[in-house]
């Protein structure tokens, strides 16, 4: 529910204090801005905001109608799978977030400062895995992880894994969560691009000044580039937290290919799906979805507070 699109990237360039030259926005530019953003806003309201409002309403209605109080939240929280799904999500989010940030920032730093041709070639290479996402990515991974057909089958078998079940270990939720996280990290190309773009906006003068002062490459990274990246890291973190609460397609597909050995209630979103479509209990499903929305929002608020993301630097 908490779509990453809900959070816009910080438009630091539009903060007047960034550009003291004092270029003011003309009336024509303002109109163009409204027109260009209106389509997005319309779609956002229709397909993200209004459904979220409806979910909030549903969450407090009894399945048969009438005000439910927190009844639906109790139904969900007392479900025997509730705690387990959030545990799975926790492991997944942790294993997904940390490498995503490290890889995005690290590779972007390595690319930054390379010759343009080299940098753009590698940018494309890093982004390539992102072109195979969601269900397609999982299918690709299933192929990779089936020893008999995998191109790395020899490696898997030398590690003692002869069957798909030895690799996937459906009885072990933690190892599954790590597997899903690895599949997700593989697609962190977008983060690399974002960070690279952010680094490119670091004013040339600042870098020059630092190198004149005798800063070496490491000092440049630690004291100049990383602090200037802070807002962008915050943005990446917010969208990644929100994205990780939406874990659904990977475990759902894994359940199908293991004939149910991986249950259909691995993640909270799957449990919400079960409530709606197996029990016909849409209010309980909404109650669970709202908790995921709050999780994403809470993460965003925390990040914004800690990093001062919207603070205007004077």
């Amino acid at each position: 529910m908490s779509a990453p699109t809900a959070v816009r990237p910080p438009r630091s360039r539009s903060v007047p204090t960034d550009r003291p030259s004092g270029r003011s926005v003309t009336r024509g530019q303002a109109t163009a801005g409204y027109v260009l953003s209106s389509l997005y806003v319309l779609l956002f309201v229709a397909f993200a905001f209004l459904p979220a409002v409806y979910a909030v309403y549903l969450a407090f209605v009894r399945p048969g109608g009438g005000f439910a109080g927190i009844g639906n939240f109790i139904t969900v929280a007392t479900d025997f799978r509730y705690v387990a799904t959030f545990k799975n999500l926790g492991v997944y989010a942790l294993v997904f977030l940390v490498p995503t940030l490290v890889i995005s920032i690290g590779l972007a730093l390595l690319l930054h400062g390379r010759r343009t041709g080299v940098a753009s070639t590698f940018r494309v290479l890093y982004y390539l895995p992102h072109s195979v996402i969601g269900v397609a990515a999982v299918l690709l991974w299933l192929f990779l992880l089936t020893p008999r057909v995998s191109p790395i089958g020899g490696l898997l078998e030398s590690l003692g894994m002869e069957q798909f079940y030895d690799v996937v270990r459906p009885g072990n939720p933690a190892s599954l969560a790590v597997l899903f996280a690895i599949i997700a990290v593989w697609t962190s190309g977008q983060g690399i691009l974002l960070m690279f773009a952010a680094l490119s906006s670091v004013p040339q003068e600042v870098e020059e000044a630092a190198s004149i002062d005798g800063a070496n490459a490491w000092q440049m990274v630690w004291h100049i580039k990383l602090p200037l990246l802070r807002k962008w890291v915050a943005y990446l973190l917010i969208t990644s937290v929100a994205a990780s609460t939406q874990l659904f397609a990977e475990p759902q597909l894994m359940s199908a290919v293991t004939n149910g050995a991986v249950g259909t209630n691995f993640s909270p979103l799957q449990l919400a799906y079960t409530f709606a479509y197996q029990y016909g209990n849409f209010p309980a499903s909404a109650a669970l979805s709202i908790q995921l929305l709050l999780l994403g929002l809470g993460g965003a608020v925390l990040v914004v507070k800690k990093t001062g993301m919207f603070r205007v630097e004077v």
Binding site: R62, P63, G64, I74, T75, F275, G280, A284
Partner: peptide, 8 residues
């Protein structure tokens, strides 16, 4: 703990 059979 309301049962899920409610309203049915």
């Amino acid at each position: 703990v309301p049962g899920q059979g409610e309203g049915t």
